[in-house]
Design a protein around this nucleic acid. Structure first.
Length: 337
DNA sequence: AACGCGGGGCT
DNA sequence: AGCCCAGCGTT
């Protein structure tokens, strides 16, 4: 692309004036920047903010995080999704304790658990001012449009080329802010469906806009169809406690979280009544959960009565919490039952 | 290269 | 009803 210096200048001036005030903006602590970047992986800013505040209050530095019980970390992460991020976070914190410090170079950062190309470049540039360009969904969209590039961004070769282009565009005097400026543009102006080109500081450099094709870019390969599944969760009370089981180490998903039993688990369970239903969609599955209260004669092996109100040592899965909410709502409409 | 992983908000 | 989101690790 021509006029790269002018592009950088226009973008950075816009960023200085229009950037959103976010809790991790203006922070210089690499630890805090790292936490924010991990939370922001595939997760919107609005969802991250409250988690970020709570997490930093609970674990102010990598030593505190390294020492914490995994249950406490998962509890603070519950609801944010992609739980391997939380486990890798703690793994990386322990790596830092071994190293004696937060690593200050790109390769060392890239070697930490849960850190890939994107996050390594983000932390290196924002926390340490190193000249590494980030490439995420926002950057790919902006670059594909600026260059009017109709290549499939799901393709590895395309990504490699875009990574090179991003590196070429990077303002080496302000790498961290330039990276954030491109992402900010993608998040607030260069939107996927309806780009706000009238507000765009670099519209003059956008070849897709010139061609009138900005809404058609970027091109992305089609993904899997969604699968619909119907299931039932059982609430079996013993006083204030409810019967649940814990996902063990062998579980590939939601490891360490507590789940409610289903009829298949409990051959002898007698359903008392239904308390409602809720929808829950994850990745390409769309669940409809029926929720029922039930009774059993004897506690089955592998199940325990846990207290939903003392969630500190029993992280509850989102479906468990939604089912408990159904029960609470049902009780409100049928008091005394 | 393809897939699994959460969950929510917007179109 | 999809699409998309400051992606990463495994196979």
């Amino acid at each position: 692309m021509k006029k790269i210096p002018a592009f950088r200048k226009a973008l950075l001036e816009w960023y200085d004036k229009h950037k959103r005030e976010l809790p991790w903006r203006g922070v210089s602590d690499p630890y805090a920047i790292w936490i924010s970047e991990i939370m922001l992986q595939q997760t919107r800013v609005a969802a991250v903010i409250p988690y970020y505040e709570r997490f930093l209050a609970a674990f102010p530095d990598f030593r505190a995080l390294a020492q914490a019980p995994e249950e406490a970390v998962l509890h603070l992460w519950a609801g944010l999704g992609y739980y391997s991020r939380a486990r890798n976070l703690q793994k990386a914190a322990r790596q830092m304790v071994e190293m004696g410090e937060f690593p200050g170079g790109y390769e060392a950062i890239r070697g930490l658990a849960g850190i890939g190309d994107y996050t390594a470049a983000a932390v290196a540039s924002i926390a340490f001012g190193l000249p590494h360009a980030v490439l995420d969904g926002n950057v790919m969209r902006v670059l594909a449009r600026v260059g009017n590039d109709a290549s499939d961004i799901a393709n590895g070769q395309t990504r490699k080329r875009l990574q090179g282009l991003a590196q070429e565009m990077l303002d080496r005097s302000r790498p961290g802010e330039f990276n954030q400026a491109v992402m900010e543009l993608g998040a607030t102006v260069c939107l996927p469906k309806q780009p706000l080109c009238a507000q765009c500081p670099v519209v003059a450099y956008c070849q897709a806009r010139t061609a009138g094709r900005e809404r058609e870019l970027p091109v992305k390969g089609r993904r899997n169809n969604t699968v619909k599944v119907e299931r039932t969760l059982l609430l079996i009370w013993k006083g204030e406690d409810v019967l649940a089981w814990k996902r063990g180490e062998e579980s590939s998903q939601l490891r360490g979280f507590w789940e409610l039993p289903e009829p298949e688990h409990l051959a002898g369970a007698q359903v008392v009544h239904s308390v409602g239903e809720f929808r829950h969609s994850i990745t390409n599955h769309q669940f409809l959960f029926h929720v029922a209260e039930a009774r059993i004669l004897r506690k089955p092996k592998g199940f325990y009565y846990v207290s939903p109100s003392h969630e500190g040592d029993t992280p509850l899965s989102t479906t468990t919490r939604k089912a408990l909410a159904c029960s609470k709502k049902w009780r409100k409409s049928f008091p005394g039952s």
